[in-house]
Design a protein around this nucleic acid. Structure first.
Lengths: 346, 346
DNA sequence: CTGAAAGCGCTAACAC
DNA sequence: GTGTTAGCGCTTTCAG
């Protein structure tokens, strides 16, 4: 019962001692479990206050066999898609009383394998992986086999799920909306810049583009298409290249906002006025798409929802309530018309 | 020596058993400590491989009394300044074998206090706080008194350090470079949009602006100045307001890129051509500043360096090698001329 | 060079 | 209502 006024490294035992109770009782009042007398409760609370005691989450995690964190793997947080995604994932994790550990795979020499190796199932209970077209699927399956909950989000193809639980969105539908918008504005000479290989991650988007072009009876030729890396710079270069070889294009469909921003910049540098000389539409709706002039017309995908549902799926998985073949769908993409598109010839 | 082919939940004890050695030996080979015979070593490694054993970081952290993570507090990851900062902090932390836990204080009802309460000194050994002008300094000091290493980065005023170890940059010098650039281009009617209260976080930047104006013998009046919230939207509005009341301004100095982007957009919407009708210069050099047209002329601050040195300072603090009054300086800001500024009247 | 014992701070059973 | 006994998975003494 000695009054130790303040103890920077107070443990639950110190508190128990000062309050004249057992460790168990302190643990109970701390977490509102078990039954504790009102009087005892107060004494314990006082002791906690005085000593400045705070429970050690590491110790708690060890004994409970569960970690207070979830891991998020993404390519690179500086890609403007991810901040919004990460924030939503973080908030969702917090709702489940978990903190978020993020891994930028682009900057890990092994693509994040060692991160998974260390963190998954040890520091973190589960792993949410944001799809970027080059996932170490085998590695993820190995983890899964080991009993670590693993989920993928931003999966592009609802009809071709991976062998791992995932959250998808309708990428083909998104592309359709974008290209239909161009068609409705009267465009016929439409180029395409795709942020992956032809059969790569954006193949659903590419399929949507092809489909609408076919329906509109427009014969699209390979010369009107470019397959590039999904970056601002690659978009910039591809636009220059495409416009040089097909100067009569009136519109360009870009499979992603980031390269589309590059296209906008290239067009400006080449002396094109947008949207007077060229319409540009893409997919995603990242923040810079609305913070530039002209604003980028784009098809918004449910970024925050993809993140939230990803965390939700992970939590269900951890609780044994979701199966390994779960496929979670998200809201339909929606067209957002801004200044980068216009009626052809106007 | 029974061969358990694969054990998803293998512990160090399982490995020891299979290898026919003691737990200690396994721990030693695992971390290259102590002396272990080559033959024994191999047996242990084989057992680890077969069982798919991976050490439990939580348990290790508990017994070592140190956590494998560091915490980073920032206002919101969707502010384009932070992705770059966070990435650099993350990479620096990794070099010290720590993962990073990030807290978006804007979205915590208590500004992150409960995050600190839970995480600091328990899940994470130390905390790096990115300054945003409204820091819970008292809370941080309390943590510090408790023995938790705490450091602040992006401190604006090298000459007025807080009572907490910090990493600073020369904000006044940055503003000077920006405004001097305007003066050199012949501008005299220069407005200012400051992303804080007059005596708020950007007061160093404001002071730099005033200083250069005075040196150039330009009488700046309050009507040419706006003090706003540090956001794109506030910048947009302030520009409209300022331009309406002072239509003869030829240039605007904005204290931060984010509101400057808003200014660029507002100017475009109001029919101003930039830089023909109006020059805009600001401070920071966030990614969107170079991914928009016209590109934003700005003074780059050493963002990555601020993050790296922040983590470095934290690590020094943890090792007891840095004092609580440490002030770490960073490289001088540099002017980056892009398309948003031009010789007056041209 | 290797092993046995102790314990990090906490919680889950079960007693009383 | 409250206390006692174990033990989470690991590392650190200290013996051999």
């Amino acid at each position: 019962m000695s009054s130790k006024p303040f103890n920077p490294a107070a443990t639950i035992r110190d508190v128990a001692e000062q309050a004249g109770v057992s460790v168990m009782t302190v643990s109970n009042v701390l977490r509102g479990r078990g039954r504790v007398g009102e009087e005892t409760r107060r004494r314990v609370l006082d002791a906690i206050e005085q000593q400045g005691y705070r429970p050690n989450l590491t110790a708690r995690a060890l004994v409970e066999g569960k970690a207070p964190t979830l891991a998020l793997m993404l390519s690179c947080i500086t890609n403007p898609f991810y901040p919004e995604f990460t924030l939503a994932a973080n908030l969702a994790a917090l709702k489940h009383e978990r903190h978020l550990l993020v891994c930028n795979t682009d900057h890990e020499s092994d693509g994040g394998t060692s991160f998974l190796e260390q963190v998954a199932g040890s520091l973190s209970d589960g792993v949410l992986v944001a799809n970027h077209g080059n996932l170490p699927i085998e590695e993820l399956k190995r983890l899964q086999a080991r009993g670590v909950p693993v989920a993928i989000s931003v999966w592009e193809l609802p009809d071709e799920p991976p062998d791992i639980p995932c959250v998808t969105f309708d990428s083909k539908g998104a592309a359709r909306l974008a290209v239909e918008h161009l068609i409705e504005l009267g465009h016929r000479r439409i180029g395409a810049i795709i942020g992956s290989a032809k059969k790569g991650i954006h193949r659903g988007r590419y399929a949507g583009y092809r489909e609408v072009m076919r329906e509109a009876k427009i014969r699209s030729v390979a010369a009107d298409e470019r397959f590039i890396v999904d970056s601002f710079e690659a978009g910039y270069e591809a636009a220059g290249d495409l416009l040089a070889s097909r100067p009569d294009l009136t519109a360009i469909f870009v499979s992603n906002d980031l390269p589309a921003l590059g296209v906008l910049n290239a067009a400006a540098d080449l002396g094109y006025s947008i949207p007077e000389d060229l319409s540009v539409v893409s997919i995603t709706d990242i923040l810079p798409a609305r913070q530039c002039r002209p604003g980028l017309t784009t098809v918004a995908i449910p970024t925050a929802e993809l993140a939230e549902k990803g965390i939700g799926l992970l939590v269900e998985l951890m609780a044994g309530r979701a199966s390994n073949s779960a496929v979670v769908h998200t809201s339909a993409p929606r067209l957002i018309v801004r200044g980068s598109t216009r009626q052809v010839g106007k």
